Simulated scan of single mutants.
Amino acid sequence: MKGTILVGVDGSEPSDAVLDWALREAARRGVPVRLAGDLVTGSSFPCPTAPSVTTGR
């Protein structure tokens, strides 16, 4: 199954866990990840560092 994985991020611990899953799943499938966040409220949060992932391509 090809496509794009869309994941919402807000800087919370559960959000970080979902982002980690999305990065691993995208690497397994060989598809890109798109992040969605809330920029309207003006809140800021640190972006977690993505682990290095080898996709085999």
Rank of each mutant, 00 (worst) to 15 (best):
M1V: 07
K2S: 13
T4H: 06
T4K: 08
I5R: 00
L6F: 13
L6R: 05
V7T: 06
D10Y: 00
D10K: 02
D10R: 02
S12A: 09
S12P: 00
S12N: 02
P14N: 04
S15E: 00
A17N: 06
V18G: 01
D20L: 08
W21D: 04
L23V: 07
L23Y: 06
R24Q: 08
R24F: 00
R24L: 02
A26D: 06
A26I: 09
R28D: 03
R28Y: 00
R28H: 01
R28K: 11
R29M: 07
G30E: 01
G30N: 06
G30M: 06
V31D: 06
V31T: 03
V31W: 06
V31A: 10
P32K: 04
P32I: 00
V33M: 15
R34Y: 10
L35I: 07
L35D: 07
A36I: 11
G37V: 13
D38T: 01
L39Q: 15
T41E: 07
T41S: 13
G42H: 05
G42S: 10
S43G: 04
S43D: 11
S44Y: 12
S44R: 09
S44K: 08
S44H: 06
P46Y: 03
P46I: 12
P46C: 05
P46A: 14
P48K: 11
P48G: 08
P48F: 04
T49R: 10
T49I: 13
T49M: 10
A50V: 14
P51H: 04
S52G: 03
S52P: 12
S52N: 11
T54S: 14
T55V: 08
T55P: 02
G56F: 13
R57C: 15
